[in-house]
């Protein structure tokens, strides 16, 4: 897949001397959904702001489909739709007017059919003549998405798109995002909801303290770092793990009532069958068992802690 956004050596130092981004290098591939994860203040929004022209870079460069964001800002920006994190909307405009305004601002000729489609896709059609001030928070969020999509962008930035949006609506938005991706739009989203990244993204980047810590295919990331755990609830308390079970590197819980076995899902053999056989041979009986898989959240937390 070809690269659509190329960020090289990008740094941002604010007037206060705070270094929000430190020599970021990142390539976004055409047509992918890229999730940018990171704790608060990691630099996610700063990075997006620079690419979209809202903040000036201190050093380094960004090109969008080969257009430098400073020298060829018109060509670069025309390709991008931005949905910022905060709900910045006009209050007294109607939904239709504000979305049409965005299309004009991006230099596109009027196209009521397109605006109608966008509003319908986002379930805003009934509200097209309502003033924005009368809408709920979730609707305002969708109005902002509609504004970003009004000019048919090739790239869509969603900065925390589902913050403060209820579960139902969130699922609806994911649906919209998938439809866009199927139509060939490249999507970059930042999120705090790890399950969102897990659910949506093709690739995941983790940013922390202004540096890209990791960029990886989601599936590979899950595979590489994903561990599974088997927990056995013992029928009777034991004091120590029998020596015969040493090769399994089991962990005995503090009360002596649980045995924990870590295994690799990517491995050819999990060792579970033989473990259970050896347990029986050792005369250990269990009343229940459960397995759990480390989520992206665990991976994320461990990554951010390491740094």
């Amino acid at each position: 897949m070809s690269t659509i956004i190329s960020v090289s050596n990008l740094s941002k130092v604010y007037g206060s001397g705070f270094r929000a981004l430190n020599k970021i290098n990142l390539d976004i591939r055409r047509g992918e959904i890229f999730a940018l994860l990171g704790p608060n203040g990691a630099g996610k929004t700063t990075l997006i702001s620079i690419v979209c022209g809202i903040a000036n870079p201190s050093e380094g460069s960004v090109s969008v489909n080969g257009h430098d964001i400073i020298k060829s800002y018109r060509a670069a920006r025309a390709m991008i739709g931005l949905v910022p994190q905060e709900l910045h909307t006009d209050s007294f405009e109607t939904v239709w007017a504000t979305v049409s305004f965005s299309r004009g601002l991006f230099g596109k000729p009027k196209n009521p059919a397109h605006i109608e489609k966008v509003l319908k896709d986002l379930s805003l059609w009934e509200k097209k003549d309502s003033k924005i001030i009368t809408l709920s928070g979730g609707m305002k969020r969708r109005v902002m998405i509609a504004k970003a999509l009004s000019h048919e962008p090739q790239i869509l930035f969603l900065d925390e798109p589902t913050a403060g949006v209820d579960v139902e609506l969130r699922k609806g938005m994911w649906e919209v995002v998938r439809t866009l991706r199927d139509a060939g739009v490249t999507i970059i989203l930042t999120t705090h909801y790890i399950e969102e990244a897990e659910e949506m993204a093709d690739r995941i980047g983790v940013i922390n303290k202004g540096e890209i810590v990791l960029v990886e295919d989601k599936a590979k990331l899950m595979e590489k770092l994903g561990r599974k755990q088997l927990k056995l609830h013992l029928a009777h308390k034991i004091d120590a793990i029998p020596p015969a079970l040493a090769p399994y590197h089991l962990v005995l819980s503090e009360g002596g009532t649980e045995l924990i076995y870590d295994y690799d899902t990517a491995g050819e053999r999990t060792g579970i069958t033989s473990l259970l056989g050896d347990l029986r041979n050792a005369g250990i009986r269990f009343s229940d068992l459960e397995t759990s898989q480390s989520s992206l959240e665990d991976i994320f937390v461990s990554l951010v802690r390491q740094v």
Binding site: C52, G53, R74, R77, A78, P84, L105
Partner: peptide, 14 residues
């Protein structure tokens, strides 16, 4: 004040 300036700044406009 309300933040909608983001759209003006991010538009392909001089």
């Amino acid at each position: 004040f309300v933040g909608t300036i983001y759209e003006i700044l991010s538009a392909p406009i001089s």
